[in-house]
Each structure stands twice: as C-alpha cells, then as structure tokens.
Nucleic acid binder design. Structure first.
Length: 273
DNA sequence: GAACCATGATTAC
DNA sequence: TAATCCTGGTTCG
C-alpha cells in the first residue's frame, strides 16, 4: 500500500540498517535467486528513489537492484538485537522475494510487482519515463505544470499518471485535491496555474512528512473529531480518502465517491468546486 | 474456506 | 476497458 513517501521511508531504513556492512542476500521464494546471489556479500553503498521506484546500489558491481512494490508489496524489517530476548522466529515467510541480512538487521521484501537486477542504462530508462518527484529537493516542477496545462484529461487522472508527476497514488491524489480545493474532474488545461503550484508544494511537504513518519498524514489535529483525537498518534486519518458518506471535516457535506479510470476517487463536492 | 478488497501498473483486445 | 500479476487482511457464508 505504498506511495512515494513509503519508498523514501524504506530507502532511508535500508541505508540506516545496511549501509557500510556486507549484506547476506537470499531469495527464500526462489524468484530472485540470481540477483540475490549477485549482491550476496557486497556492501550497500546507498539507495536512490524516483517516485515509487527504489534502487539499491552495491559496491563492486555496476548493476542495481530495482524494486517496485506495486499495490501490496512491503518490507518487513526487524532488529535482531531487539528481538534477541523475545525468542521470535526470524525465519522468512515462503513469500519472501528478497531477504537482506547483517549481524544486526533483517529486511524481508514481500509481494513486490518488481524486484530485478538492472544496468545503469535500464535505470536511466526507467527514470526518464517518470515525471518530476516532489520528494527530490532539486526537482523542477515545470514539466509537471506544462503537461497538466496542455492535457484535456482530468486533473484527477493526471495526478495518478507517473509520467506527469512521480510518486502520487490514490491517497495523496484525493488529499492534495481536497487541500487545494480543486475539483478532480476539471480538465488539466483548465486548472489554475496557481492551484498547480499549490498542489506541487503541498505534495513536497506532505510526502516529506510521510517519508519521515512512514505514513500519510494530511489532517491537521484541530480538524480531527473528538473521538479521533483520543486514538493513538499512529492511526492514519484522511480528509476525504475512504471517507465517503462521512461528513466533510470542513463543511459537513457528505464526502463523494466515484470510479475514475478504474480507481476510486473521493472528494467533497462543496469544497472542491 | 471462499470471496473480496487494497495507497499499482502493464498488457492485450 | 478488462485481464493479469503480486500478498494478506477482512468479510461472508
């Protein structure tokens, strides 16, 4: 269930856990055996990300591990030190595509759409197909503005198009459009440029926060209901995503839901005219 | 235990 | 637009 923020979060976690030490790599599931063998015993130099794509770079080899989590891919990481006392079974699940391990940590990759060993040329090819990533501090949003303003597709569709802007998924789409009071059904060419700038800037801030927390947070605390304020701080809240039929947090109108190009779209018809 | 669903994306028709 | 891939949690009977 990952959007761009999760990818950056996992990238950071892998640098924290594995950078600088040789890693033991295996593919318990048997579907990434060759790639795992190629990096086994190598040292993680670092990670890079673009949108929802994660790249692991290892010493002494030119090839790169490319991971895309898809709809339900995920990493499960554990600290062996932390687990030592509680007799936890650390053996991998049969569905583990890639296990990385050193004396201190284990990371298991489960259910990714892609986990492959690629050349730098292939990496370039992947990135060149993607739009700018709001999580890259040096990113130039201009291509994003241009593509939206020259398209007759709806802004709701365009935000999900990775070649237009990279890293946005169904949750951030809904939340960004709500926070900028933008109607999802407006054609790109008719969106106000100031609104586009707001969308980009909000994406940069929210996804940065999300990559730190490991979860999407888009609702200011004062907009939570009293009941929600009582819940733990690690509960996820949204303004409109999956809140259809609930009252809008701002105006009280019932949040709408619709199907847009095969994905569920949530929005407030009053706040997003 | 089956059926369904999900923060994704590609491929084929 | 539909079928397909990947997994696991929840819901249904």
């Amino acid at each position: 269930m990952p959007e761009g923020h999760s990818i950056r979060y996992f990238a950071d976690a892998h640098e924290h856990c594995f950078q600088g030490l040789p890693v033991e790599a295996s593919s318990p599931q048997g579907r990434f055996t060759e790639g795992a063998a190629a990096i086994n015993g190598r040292t993680l130099l670092g990670t890079t990300t673009h949108g929802k794509h994660l790249f692991l770079h290892f010493a002494e080899v030119d090839e790169i591990v490319h991971i895309h989590l898809g709809l339900y891919g995920w990493f499960k990481a554990v600290s062996k030190e932390y687990r030592k006392s509680d007799d936890v079974d650390l053996s991998p699940k049969p569905s583990t595509r890639l296990r990385l391990e050193n004396p201190y940590y284990i990371s298991d990759l489960i259910g990714p759409t892609k986990c492959e060993y690629i050349t730098t040329e292939q990496l370039q090819a992947i990135c060149s197909r993607l739009g700018p990533d709001p999580l890259h501090e040096e990113a130039d949003p201009e291509p994003f503005y241009k593509k939206v303003l020259s398209s007759k597709k709806t802004i709701g569709q365009l935000l999900m198009d990775q070649s237009v802007i990279a890293g946005i998924g169904n949750v951030y789409r809904a939340e960004l459009l709500f926070l900028t009071q933008q109607n999802p059904m407006t054609p790109g060419s008719q969106v106000n440029e100031q609104t586009l700038i707001k969308i980009w800037n909000a994406a940069a801030v929210l996804m940065q926060d999300g990559s730190t927390d490991g979860m999407i947070r888009t609702v200011p605390r004062y907009n939570l209901t009293e009941e929600e304020k009582q819940r733990g701080r690690y509960t996820q809240y949204s303004n409109v995503y999956k809140r259809h039929t609930n009252p809008c947090r701002v105006c009280g109108t019932s949040v709408s839901i619709a199907d847009l190009a095969g994905r569920k779209l949530y929005w407030c018809t009053e706040c997003q005219k």
